[in-house]
Design a protein around this nucleic acid. Structure first.
Length: 445
RNA sequence: GGUCCGGUGGCAGAAUGGUGAUGCAGCGGACUGCAAAUCCGCGUACGUGGGUUCGAUUCCCGCCCGGACCUCCA
């Protein structure tokens, strides 16, 4: 039984799908104007673990994650680069896919693009205008927040608080300061679509409402994304969708992940304190980065550092060694302590802690424990390579073997100075030797 | 200014109203020609002041500190 924290309820509760034969999940995807950074990755990783778990618990999961390919930042970046907008979005989307694939993040079942769903958005906007939840003003279509009584309940803020705390100038055509744009006029040189309100482009929030409705219906199970999307994006999505389809529930369960920090501050493009996924993968294999994310609960903040990445690598060294010693076999069941931890609101730190007793036993050649460890790791998206690949890929094995033989001869004749020199030489190249009863083995340090 | 979240040992990070996870680092030992790996053992914690309780790190209140959101953001 899966228990999941629900943002709307502000507490954990049992997860019960609307349709147990098809669990439906929507996560907000990237706006494709630049390479994804480590902060963006947090939500993708959170979704990945959730989807992996749901897939083992239910026969079918429909996972939708959108691509936002119409946006002011995209327009600005394209102009800056002197690049065609569609070339920019195409190139960035592809890079995004590559980055996530190299981290073993499962692709969504459906990945809709906003620009392919303008008709769906216009249909929703039309309905909202018709039923009085939206109004047209100076070429804009605006959502009237005052007409939706439960506006603000998702993010836990009242309209009056928001007005009191408003730091932004209110556009004169808004009836209420909290009203937000569904559709806005587009300049001739920017992307635009014909509509009953003139040539224009959609507001950000309506995109997700339209795409989730298209693929998941009026009611679906889980809507997720980063904490920073809770307000206004998710609050607005919910308002639009529920006013447009009053008989639907929209998302029954809201999941929000905490932010990734860099030196104690949110990692973001606007602050400029970010590392792209690519930059990190140029310096480290993928799995330590994955383990680093899994080492903190998804709802808490996580401060990235290279030291933590290095520690994660050392932990993986030990786990891979345990797999090797225990001769792990594929196909075992995920051990209960790991499964239980994940079913308790995706408690990945606890799940990882549960890996260590398995590794201890595997280290003593307990094959069942080793196989359980393998299954548990795979559940977490780890152990995508073999121990041999983990320890020995990417170096010239032949040359190393030759030096090991030379050293063995030196040791036999008790020429330890020579033997140690060879070992030191290999160490300088990042190769560690281990002398055991069965001979000498080597691995990347 | 408004709203919300959090403050656990050197670091990271769980659980929990009463037997102080787990990992990394450190220290001691076994093993080893010496190492490495492995094994055994050790240490140090619950921001602060009150309250509730037989008993609080765990519940409640104040304070301090940090972070997020209120504007594009995962």
């Amino acid at each position: 039984m899966l228990r999941l924290h629900d943002t709307h309820l502000r507490d954990k509760r049992p997860f019960t799908p609307l349709d147990p034969t098809n669990v439906r999940v929507y996560f907000c995807g990237p706006t494709v104007y630049d390479r994804a950074h480590l902060g963006n990755l947090r939500a993708m990783m959170c979704a990945d673990i959730l989807i992996r778990l749901l897939r083992t618990l239910y026969p079918r999961v429909t996972y939708v994650r959108n691509v936002t390919d119409v946006d002011d930042k995209i327009n600005a970046r394209a102009k800056e680069n002197g690049e065609d907008i569609s070339a920019l979005t195409e190139r960035t989307t592809q890079a995004f896919h590559e980055d996530l694939a190299s981290l073993f993040i499962l692709p969504p079942d459906i990945e809709p693009r906003a620009t392919h769903h303008i008709d769906d958005m216009l249909e929703m906007i039309g309905r909202l205008v018709e039923n009085g939840h939206a109004y047209v003003a100076e070429g804009h279509v605006l959502f009237a927040v005052r007409n939706f009584p439960s506006y603000g309940t998702l993010s836990g803020r009242s309209l009056d608080d928001m007005i009191a705390g408003a730091r932004v100038e209110v556009a004169p055509y808004k009836r209420d300061p909290g009203d937000f744009v569904l559709w806005k006029p587009s300049e001739p040189d920017l992307p635009g679509w014909d509509s009953p309100y003139g040539r224009g482009r959609p507001g950000w929030h309506i995109e997700c409402s339209a795409m989730s409705h298209r693929y998941l219906g009026e009611s679906f199970d889980i809507h997720g994304g980063g904490d920073d999307l809770l307000f206004p994006h998710h609050e607005n999505e919910r308002a639009q969708s529920m006013c447009c389809y009053p008989h639907g529930k929209f998302a029954t369960h809201w999941v929000h992940n905490g932010m990734l920090l860099s030196n104690g501050e949110k990692m973001s493009k606007s602050l400029g304190n970010f590392f792209t996924i690519r930059e990190v993968l140029d310096r480290s294999p993928a799995e330590p980065l994955r383990l680093l994310y899994l080492g903190a609960h998804y709802r808490s903040t996580l401060d990235f550092s290279w030291e933590k990445l290095d520690e994660a690598r050392r932990v993986l060294d030990r786990l891979y060694r345990a797999l090797e010693r225990g001769d792990a076999q594929a196909g075992a069941a995920v051990p209960a302590p790991v499964m239980d931890a994940l079913c308790d609101d995706l408690n990945t730190p606890l799940a990882i802690a549960a890996l260590h007793p398995l590794a201890d036993a595997a280290m003593q050649s307990d094959q069942d424990a080793a196989s359980g460890l393998l299954a548990a790791g795979k559940m977490l998206g780890l152990f995508n390579v073999t121990p041999a690949e983990w320890f020995q890929s990417g170096v010239d094995a032949g040359a190393i073997e030759k030096l090991i033989e030379e050293r063995l001869a030196a040791r036999k004749s008790r020429d330890f100075a020579r033997a140690d020199a060879i070992r030191a030489q290999l160490a300088a190249d990042g190769i560690t030797l281990e002398d055991g009863p069965g001979g000498t083995t080597w691995r990347k340090a």
